[in-house]
Nucleic acid binder design. Structure first.
Length: 677
RNA sequence: GGCGAGAUAGCUCAGAUGGUUAGAGCGCAUGAUUCAUAAUCAUGAGGUCGGGGGUUCAAUUCCCCCUCUCGCUACCA
């Protein structure tokens, strides 16, 4: 096992187009914070880096819908998220942002180095250009008819209705969402990172060299490598981002996936003039904390970039977590199915550690896990209050009651006392390997065993029974209880920093180092402690019910109205509208198209004829349920071959923001072929 | 369709290069106890380890098939 001189910890850069929720915390920031705090306690040289990721098309889109500038969007969320991290004690050495000057320079330099080394390939492609707005259009800015499903609102990169990934040139009747005009194709030059070139090296490095990575990470990398890697464009025609630093590259910026990971480097640079020591010296252990959605970037693409650049070290491990669900359902920003960090703090002031604890005990380390409010309550009441808070309270109250708040000396210790004392060190020794291999749930469970040990020790020795008959023995007992309490301030520090700080205050002691954990002389005889308060308080049923109701209510609202309402399309003439022939029809037969997931082949009676329509609705409808249903169709849509079947027309569907499809049917049965107008 | 991860006590999860009674925490039951936020401590009940087949003296652990969940990817409206 290689030993390292220093650590560089990065945490995935949160995208600055929305607030943070518990999923972010459980997946990335709590684990990275625990790990960082542990290393710091051990006195290691460690930097923890994070920043807001502030470029990319979604931010420009959000700005547009809100009628503000992209800068205003990122400013808002950068401040909000930065504060949320601070409030939860996520102790980054720096929380920077990718709109900083130093990042612009770093990312530009990085690009230039690769450019000058000839690491990029250049390719001219035809892209849509908006002549009115005078700019190239990012894929998301082009809307047109999906060539597959006929959805008129398909974006240039993807049709949200059928899920097809598209390229903008495939869209029928494309138009710009900026000016509404019809864009023209223009040639444009872009730079590509030929990932295929690094495939062999990546295989060797990951599949052979890092078999110790978590199975989910290793498996995902293997999956990617076996599918073969393609060159990836590193630039885009866009005006929000870092300009490509090459002559004649006006109007082009670095693609956000390229600039974002470089943000780790720039933030380090901003933090310390010694940044190169952390990024280029092989004695540095680089660890990326991320969620599973980011595995490919941090295990494949970013390492390929670093390798191409040549002077940087590579990550030693990428302990990606899976996802946290909420009350049995996926966390979803658009459905507002989330517990937002800033809202949690308003409703549970001072209870940062409760959330940290619950998220840690239930961290999605090996598979997706679930956050349940009932579970949150149970863990608070049965573990934090009953086991930890209670033990601390007992030991401090006993010290005050029997010794006026002055720590007694141990007189004579018996075998049991010695066994308990040695147990402290054993617990510490158990925690270390868990923390070092990113098994934080295990580590925290073991840490809590120290409080359990304390409770058991008091129950077994029963000082309240003998404090008159054997005061010397009680001195020993209370001394040991205090040593356990002091050790808790060390061992729990990575997990519950607010709690341990409070506890140190009551113990009236300073911060101990990790190496001191296990010692039985942390609190010397004669040391005066303070009057304790309560470490945790019980959470009652009604508080939890309120949270559950709040979630359900927001979900209901979302179902009723849809949170993401797409802005109206441009005005069309009546003439244009009337050229579309919408009719009622009845489904005669329906069957799944073989070897597809989404396609149904429908035979329908249109009143005019009997025809076949292929529709991408198989995920929402059983074929049998459709037979006999009256529906609405576009009867004069140009025919199109789909999977070898000629589809004549398209079925009208209402689609909510979650992508769920509902048939648009006449409210009462009517003749097939009736005109809908 | 392909690939990856997962399915173990009521709940959340560990675990085994195949081999004596499969573990933890919480919950539950019973008992003990009162220093402590009706907290604590002890004991116990609870699992044919997703389903089916195979290899083996022996599989929950290895192999094959199937079902379900999550993710990636392909084809695609």
């Amino acid at each position: 096992m290689k030993s390292f001189k220093r650590h560089l910890i990065t945490s995935a850069l949160p995208y600055a187009n929305g607030p943070l929720h518990i999923g972010h915390l459980a997946g990335v920031y709590v684990p990275s914070d625990i790990y960082t705090r542990y290393l710091r306690l051990k006195g290691q040289d460690v930097l923890s880096i994070c920043a807001s990721d502030e470029h990319g098309v979604p931010i420009t889109l959000k700005a547009r819908t809100e009628g503000i500038t992209p800068k205003e969007v990122v400013d808002r969320y950068h401040e909000l998220n930065k504060k949320a991290f601070e409030d939860f004690g996520i102790a980054f050495d720096i929380y920077s942002r990718t709109s900083n000057k130093v990042h612009y320079e770093t990312a530009s330099d990085f690009f230039l180095t690769l450019y000058n080394k000839g690491e990029f390939t250049e390719k001219v492609t035809e892209q849509y250009y908006d002549e009115e707005a005078g700019c190239f259009l990012a894929d998301r800015y082009i809307v047109g008819t999906c060539p597959q499903c006929g959805n008129e609102n398909a974006y240039g990169d993807q049709c949200e209705k059928c899920g097809t990934s598209l390229s903008p040139t495939e869209l029928i009747n494309p138009h710009s969402t900026i000016s509404g005009s019809k864009p023209v194709l223009r040639e444009t030059l872009h730079w590509y990172l030929p990932l295929d070139k690094y495939e062999g090296w990546l295989r060797e490095w990951i599949l052979e060299g890092h078999k110790e990575w978590k199975t989910n990470v290793y498996g995902q990398c293997k999956s990617w490598l076996e599918q073969g890697l393609q060159p990836r464009a590193v630039s885009r025609d866009l005006d929000w981002g870092i300009p490509v630093p090459v002559d004649g590259a006006g109007g082009k910026v670095l693609y956000v996936w390229f600039d974002a990971p470089i943000g780790y480097i720039s933030a380090t640079k901003e933090l310390t003039p010694e940044w190169e020591k952390y990024w280029k010296d092989p004695d540095t252990k680089l660890i990326h904390f991320i969620g599973k959605d980011n595995i490919v970037f941090h295990c494949i693409i970013f390492p390929a970039m670093l390798k191409a650049e040549g002077s940087f070290i590579l990550p030693e491990n990428v302990p990606a977590n899976e996802f946290l669900n909420l009350e049995n359902d996926k966390i979803s920003t658009s459905r507002n199915w989330a517990v937002w960090l800033h809202e949690y703090l308003e409703e549970f002031p001072g209870k940062q550690d409760v959330l940290r604890y619950v998220l840690c005990t239930n961290m999605p380390e090996t598979k997706d896990s679930d956050f349940m409010w009932k579970d949150f309550q149970a863990k608070n009441n049965n573990e934090l209050v009953a086991i930890l808070g209670n033990f601390v309270n007992r030991s401090l109250v006993l010290t005050n009651n029997y010794f006026g708040g002055i720590a007694p000396a141990r007189s004579k210790t018996d075998d049991y006392d010695e066994k308990v004392l040695s147990e402290i060190e054993r617990i510490r020794n158990n925690i270390e390997p868990s923390l070092e291999s990113f098994r934080f749930r295990d580590a925290l469970r073991e840490a809590m065993n120290l409080a359990r040990l304390g409770n058991k020790y008091l129950a077994d020795t029963e000082p309240w029974k003998i404090h008159k008959s054997d005061p010397e023995k009680v001195k020993t007992i209370i001394n040991i209880a205090l040593q356990i309490t002091a050790n808790l301030t060390i061992i729990l520090e990575p997990f519950l920093p607010f709690t341990t700080k409070k506890l140190r205050g009551w113990l009236n002691c300073g911060k101990f180092s990790w190496a001191e954990a296990g010692r039985s002389d942390l609190i010397p005889p004669g040391h005066a402690i303070k009057k304790p308060g309560l470490l945790f308080e019980k959470i009652e049923d009604d508080v939890i019910e309120k949270q559950i109701n709040k979630l359900r209510a927001s979900l209901k609202t979302n179902n009723d109205t849809g949170t993401t309402v797409i802005p109206p399309k441009e005005t069309v003439s009546f003439d244009l509208f009337s050229r579309i022939d919408i009719r009622t029809a009845t489904v005669l037969e329906a069957e799944k198209v073989p070897r597809t997931t989404k396609l149904l082949k429908l035979t329908i009676d249109t009143g005019i004829d009997t025809r076949t329509i292929v529709s991408g609705i198989a995920e929402y409808f059983q074929p049998d349920d459709l037979v006999g249903k009256q529906i609405s169709i576009v009867a004069n849509l140009e025919p199109r071959k789909i999977k070898g079947i000629e589809s004549k027309g398209m079925i009208l569907m209402a689609e909510d923001s979650g992508g769920k499809l509902v048939l648009v049917s006449p409210a009462e049965k009517t003749g097939n072929g009736s005109i809908i107008k």
